[in-house]
Write a protein that binds this DNA or RNA. Structure first.
Length: 857
RNA sequence: GGGCGCGUAGCUCAGUUGGUUAGAGCGCUACGUUGACAUCGUAGAGGUCACAAGUUCGACUCUUGUCGCGCCCA
């Protein structure tokens, strides 16, 4: 056997293990193994945005614990890794690092900067993930901007385009004025803030009482195309069909009835603008209202508006022009203040109310959104809500209630998925628009064989460069990461495939692990793509992790200053304890970062080291060839009752841990393992067996039995803990099983999980063994109450009750004497005056007659 | 407004289909070290299981309602 180092050095072990795993390609997916053993994980490619946070550590470790279990259990695990290194978050990182603005730079120059900056940040992830011991298959590492990823992503585009599921439309679009790009509904966040509801009268053409409307966005008055009134409104009969005159612009607009107006809100009458919100779009379409764009792509008021033309008449063109000039170039918020002053000067504000209003903002920039009309590429989702929901129900959600989040998101969808972004650094939309006479504007897409294409540089087949205009917009990063399974199988459909055979084998995948805040993005989009491409689900199971909270249970955020640097965390505690902390949390539940639990992990590593060291010391004394608990019991190599007892409890633990893991309840597995290791093995079995590990020369049967058992328990416990604390377990596994100069195979290899068939009978010697431990506990209590050492000598230990001791605890009298340091044990009446205590289960009462104190020194 | 999750010891959390006396770790108290471990061990104190009603022989567990916290959706 190898020599056992006295102390465990985590840093050394981490480096040694990583080197060995990498060299041995320990986590490489085995293409030659039978496909039915495949277990494929759709790993989240982390967004390269410059920040490593504890959330990464938490979420990715949860997935790795599961991955390691499945691999050890015999599955051929494919656990890929990639980096999502393009799109807005990456652009922002580059802008910050290089102190530039992408929007004001030449595209090629900016993209070059991106490619320069990214590698360093990817390396930070690589280092973190390596340190965390993520058992990914590094040979399949990918980037979402690589040629191959771009090919697959553009294949996805082509497939949807050919199927009519993806189209370019000129229509009202969610717009982030800060980043100056279209965004999707998933990138909208609704924040609540204090707003002001302004009551503004609109004169009615031909006289009569003005129509009073309430609005939070008076700066959009110029965009007003109609007043909308509920048909049941008291003034509906009087006003519908008449025209109202917009204040300041004097534009006559029709008053129309629509029962979608909320009669309870404001005055029950609203102005419909192009566009203030989603209902405006609906009214604009239903009532065929004019499109009046007053805000530009930067979120500023237009410099000029064609008011006074036939399409946009005004009763006071000069007044309107003056208003336009006064507001021109102001951002929406400033314009709002300005127009309110103008209205106020003219006495046109009847009332102002302070309200809580919900304002949609762009999640990333925080800017209040505008809805403006631009040409964008949309993937059709609204028509497929039912199909998407149905696919969601085919997937197993862990925990189950997370499906609810998915469903409420899908049910609340109001927009098709806009995938074009007015940005520089992303996967190109593979399209050109023809300039050829007679087919101007015709959409041209490449052949599959031409991919990947960059339409700003490349030219489609059959066209001259000056005959086409290449699309300059790029794709939403989610449009690419939503095919993360296909980026790994390198195929979309049979026609659009780089490796269709592998795709058929690996897709749909086994597991998608991810955090809950990206259900509406990543999970949703991936499900949409799988549905549109192949009418299937992307994975059988989705495991949702919670958030990592600060140790006081609050959300970690930069503004609170409670963000923990994951690298510092790993430096402070070591990777195994950090993983242990993760392992105590359940899927779906948010977990506070707990120094207690982290320290517990540290203690566990030390304890495990020492427990195996004890076994190793015993095993060094004699060469044995253990087979398995079951085989060694059957062959008689393991014969001692307490050995059979501990192996029975171990068998029970293996079953519990296995069942829990199969249900993705790894925290329950960890608890079961912990209970066994700490309470049964260390606190009791090791103490009991010590006497039989001290011998000189050839071991007798009891000693041999102890050695075999110590090997099996240590070996099995190391395997059980392996998914959680991979470094110390692999180090210990090698010390137990490797020979001098010959390392053992890694404990993390396929098939290394303890097999149920190898385990002992769970009930073997169960009653007697439990009674033994309970009597031992009572004896310890007596000594504790006497305030003497556990090693204090006992003259007689008496267990209350009739019958032979052997009936109670089997043939283990010698062990009981040894572990309690008693010269004699007996059953029957407790001796008068002897100190005694009851066992925890109150089944036994135990008295100790202490030996007279030995000669003082 | 609709939905989901949570509320158990001072703290962080377990508690399997309802079943004796509700558990663990930390913290606290007392004691204990010459042969795995003081980064330890043994023992102890500590809980009206948020609250209320109901179902039941029996409720931390099931039902309904209330309160508080967090989140998702609108």
């Amino acid at each position: 056997m190898k020599a056992f180092p006295n102390k465990y050095k985590p840093a050394t072990a981490e480096a040694a293990c990583n080197e060995r795993w990498l060299k041995d390609e320990a986590f490489k997916w085995d293409e030659a193994a039978p496909p039915e053993t495949d277990y494929v994980i759709d790993t989240p490619p982390p967004t390269v945005s410059g920040t490593l946070h504890v959330g990464h550590v938490y979420s990715y470790t949860q997935a790795d614990i599961v991955a390691r279990y499945f691999r050890m259990s015999g599955r051929n695990v494919l656990y890929p890794i990639g980096w999502d290194d393009n799109g807005l978050p990456t652009e922002r990182l580059v802008e910050k690092v290089k102190k530039v603005r992408g929007g004001t730079m030449a595209r090629e120059e900016f993209v070059a900067l991106c490619r320069e900056v990214i590698p360093e940040y990817e390396q930070q992830f690589r280092d973190l993930f390596t340190r965390l011991a993520l058992s990914v298959d590094w040979s399949r590492e990918y980037q979402t901007i690589s040629d191959e990823s771009r090919t697959v992503s553009q294949m996805s585009f082509l497939d949807l385009y050919r199927k009519g599921l993806l189209e370019r439309r000129m229509e009202p679009t969610l717009w982030d004025p800060a980043d100056r790009t279209a965004i999707a509904q998933a990138e909208v966040e609704e924040i609540e803030r204090e707003g002001r509801l302004n009551y503004i009268p609109f004169q009615i053409e031909g006289g009569g009482d003005p129509a009073l409307i309430a609005t939070t966005r008076p700066e959009l008055i110029a965009a007003c195309g109609a007043l909308i009134i509920h048909p049941e409104h008291p003034r509906a009969k009087e006003l519908v069909g008449k025209r109202a005159i917009t204040p300041l612009y004097a534009v006559p607009v029709p008053v129309v009835a629509d029962d979608t107006v909320d009669p309870e809100k404001g005055t029950g009458m609203v102005m419909c603008c192009t566009f203030g919100d989603v209902t405006d779009i609906q009214w604009y379409r239903t009532h065929k209202l004019p499109l009046r764009v007053v805000i530009d792509q930067a979120g500023k008021m237009a410099q000029d508006l064609p008011i006074g033309t036939d399409d946009w008449p005004s009763l006071d063109v000069d007044g309107a022009k003056a208003t336009i000039a006064a507001l021109a170039g102001l951002k929406a918020e400033k314009a709002k203040q300005a127009i309110l002053e103008m209205l106020s000067e003219r006495g046109l504000i009847e009332k102002q109310e302070t309200t809580r209003q919900v304002v949609p903002v762009a999640e990333r920039s925080g800017a209040p959104l505008e809805i403006i009309v631009t040409p964008q590429w949309f993937i059709r989702t609204l028509d497929f809500k039912d199909a998407i929901l149905a696919k969601g129900r085919e997937i197993e959600w862990k925990p189950e209630y997370m499906r609810q989040r998915f469903e409420s998101w899908v049910e609340g969808l109001k927009w098709d998925w806009s995938i074009s972004r007015q940005r520089h650094f992303g996967v190109a939309l593979p399209v050109w628009y023809s300039r050829r006479p007679g087919e101007e504007g015709k959409v041209i897409v490449p052949e599959a064989s031409e991919l990947p294409v960059d339409p700003t540089v490349d030219t489609p087949k059959g066209y001259q460069p000056d005959e086409v205009e290449g699309e300059r917009d790029v794709m939403d990063t989610w449009a690419t990461s939503s095919v993360s399974p296909q980026l790994n199988t390198r195929s979309i459909t049979e026609e659009l495939a780089l490796d269709w055979q592998t795709h058929q084998r690996l897709f749909p995948m086994s597991l998608r692990p991810q955090a809950h805040e990206i259900i509406r993005t990543w999970a949703f989009y991936t499900i949409v793509k799988a549905l549109h491409h192949q009418q299937t689900i992307p994975w059988k199971t989705i495991a949702i992790s919670g958030w990592c909270l600060a140790s006081d249970g609050s959300k970690m955020s930069k503004s609170k200053g409670n963000v923990i640097d994951p690298v510092k965390l790993l430096d402070e505690y070591g990777a195994d304890p950090v993983r242990y902390w993760t392992g105590t949390s359940r899927l779906g539940h948010d977990t506070a970062l707990s120094p207690n639990t982290l320290n517990q992990g540290k203690r566990l590593v030390t304890k495990l080291w020492n427990a195996v060291k004890l076994a190793h010391m015993a095993l060094e004394q004699a060469g044995i060839t253990p087979v398995s608990p079951r085989a060694d019991i059957e062959s008689g190599a393991i014969s001692h009752p307490m050995d059979r007892w501990v192996l029975g409890r171990l068998a029970e633990t293996v079953k519990k841990a296995t069942d829990s893991f199969e249900a993705y309840e790894y925290a329950a597995a960890l608890r079961a393992i912990e209970d066994f290791f700490w309470r049964i093995h260390c606190d009791n079995y090791l103490e009991i067996v010590k006497a039989r590990t001290r011998f000189e020369g050839e071991p007798d049967a009891g000693q041999l039995s102890a050695l075999h058992t110590l090997h099996h328990v240590s070996d099995t416990v190391v395997r059980l803990y392996a998914p959680f604390i991979p470094y110390v377990t692999d180090t210990l596994f090698d010390l137990l099983n490797g020979a001098e100069g010959a390392d053992a195979k890694t404990v993390h290899a396929r098939g290394m999980w303890p097999k149920a068939d190898d385990q002992a009978d769970a009930d073997g010697f169960r009653t007697e063994g439990d009674a033994f431990v309970s009597i031992l506990g009572a004896a310890r209590k007596v000594k504790s109450e006497l305030q003497v050492s556990m090693r204090a000598e006992v003259e007689t230990l008496t267990v209350q009750g009739a019958g032979a001791l052997a009936d109670l605890i089997g043939d283990t009298e010698a062990d009981l004497k040894a572990v309690t340091n008693a010269a004699a044990v007996a059953t029957g009446d407790l001796p008068d005056g002897a100190p005694s205590a009851s066992s925890a289960d109150e089944k036994h009462r135990v008295a100790l007659v202490m030996a007279p104190p030995s000669q003082e020194e």
